[in-house]
Structure formats: structure tokens, C-alpha cells
Design a protein around this nucleic acid. Structure first.
Lengths: 110, 110
DNA sequence: TGTTCATATGAATATATTATCATATGTTCA
DNA sequence: TGAACATATGATAATATATTCATATGAACA
């Protein structure tokens, strides 16, 4: 499978004629990234899949808060999970998560 | 100037070892994209620079609400402006805006 | 079966955010 | 200068959001 690349010309074309309702969906997606707890969860999973307890330890946060945010992330298809005994093992759902984070990172570093 | 490209390997490397405070800045940036009024403004400016009145007309929103959001966008360096007579002409500040929107768009379309 | 561990979820509170209204600032031009 | 226009901004009210607390669900296993 070839590595996917993005260049500016493709991007201009990609954005043109975006309908109003799609913009609204897009805002909802970015809203999910716009919370540092959720972003820290994503970043934690970027370093490897984890169960809920491990995520809590990694973030130093309570189980309930983390579960609530995992629910949001899952609802937006940014993470997925598999059950393993008593545990739920969460992992990043696709590579767009990484790409979006990388783009944002590049922006703030300038 | 060569067209910039991004591939998955670069991206993995880009994200590795991101410090905690940078994640917080990143969440703040995404928060800016996570509002449909602001996203509509960005999209409007993607189609061409505009003064405040024109943006208001394009969005069908009041001047005050738009100005408040332009302030947020400007504070985050996503738009810039030049003064021209009585008008402030706003435009997209850089190409990352487009890239970030394109990545998000691609995600929601799957 | 009953206890423990792991996770999910509902309700409530505290905080943040957005649009509106009113007004201030600044520019143009008669 | 002062009237008209364009934009910016402060305060407020309405809404949305996140965390906490309490509790429910479900699996493993003695």
C-alpha cells in the first residue's frame, strides 16, 4: 500500500464547495480535539493501546472523567476498543487522528 | 518553492515526544476550529478575502458576533487583516488552516 | 453464588463559551 | 466640525461542557 501524501493543490480542491452542513460536522469533530483531556488520551494511545485503568494512570485522572471522554472519542470514531476479559482496550481508530494532530502541532510551532 | 507533502512516517516522527504543555496549546488551537461560526468564517475567507460587513452578509450573522469571533481567529493567527479606509479586510493567515480543514473533512467523509 | 475488579453511565455542580445589546473608537467626507 | 459608516469591545444572559459523586453493569474466580 502506497504512503498517502497531501499537497496544497489537492487540499485546495478538497475544500472547495463544502456544503454548510458538512462545515457543521467538521466543527463538531474539531470540538472533540479541542479539549486537553481528550487530546491527552489520544496522545497516550498514540504511544500504544491501553485499557482504561492505564489511561487513568497515564493522565493522573479519575476513572469516571476518563470514561466519559473515551465515550466522546469513540462516538466520533477517533478511538475504538476491544474487550479483553474485564478490560476494555482502547486504541486509535485511524491515521487521520495522527495527521490532524501533526498539522496542528506544526501550526503552533511557528 | 517545492510543494510541501506529508506522509505517515514523517507524521509519526512529528508527534513523538510531544511535551504536556504543547498538548494544551494544541487543544486550544483545535478549540478555535471547533465552533461552526468560526469555521464558516474561515471557509468564507478561503473563498477570498473580505471585510467584516461582507463576512456578516455571507454568514447571515450580526456584526458584533462576527467581530468577536474574528478576534479569536486573529489571536490564534489563523486570520490576519489589513486596514483599508474604514474597512478591515480579513484573510487566511497561512496554509495550515486549509490543511487542517482538509484533514478533518477527509475524516468525517469515511 | 457472592465478592472483587474494571468499566460505564446518570445526575448535579462548576466553569466556559457564545450571541446580543449597548456603546466606544476610528475613518471619510460634506 | 459633525454626520454617516465600519469595526471593535465590554457586560450580560443563555447555553454548553467537564468533572465529580454515586451507582449500575458485567466479567472472573474462589
Amino acid at each position: 500500500m502506497p504512503t498517502k501524501k497531501y499537497d496544497k493543490n489537492q487540499i485546495d480542491h478538497m475544500i472547495a464547495d463544502m456544503p454548510e452542513n458538512e462545515l457543521s460536522d467538521l466543527a463538531d469533530l474539531f470540538k472533540v480535539f479541542g479539549d486537553s483531556t481528550r487530546l491527552r488520551i489520544l496522545y497516550s494511545l498514540f504511544r500504544g493501546e491501553k485499557n482504561v485503568t492505564e489511561i487513568c494512570e497515564d493522565l493522573g485522572m479519575g476513572q469516571s472523567a476518563v470514561s466519559h471522554q473515551l465515550r466522546v472519542l469513540k462516538g466520533n470514531k477517533l478511538v475504538a476498543l476491544r474487550k479483553e476479559g474485564k478490560s476494555s482496550i482502547y486504541f486509535l481508530a485511524d491515521d487521520h487522528v495522527k495527521t490532524i494532530i501533526a498539522m496542528g502541532k506544526e501550526h503552533i510551532e511557528e
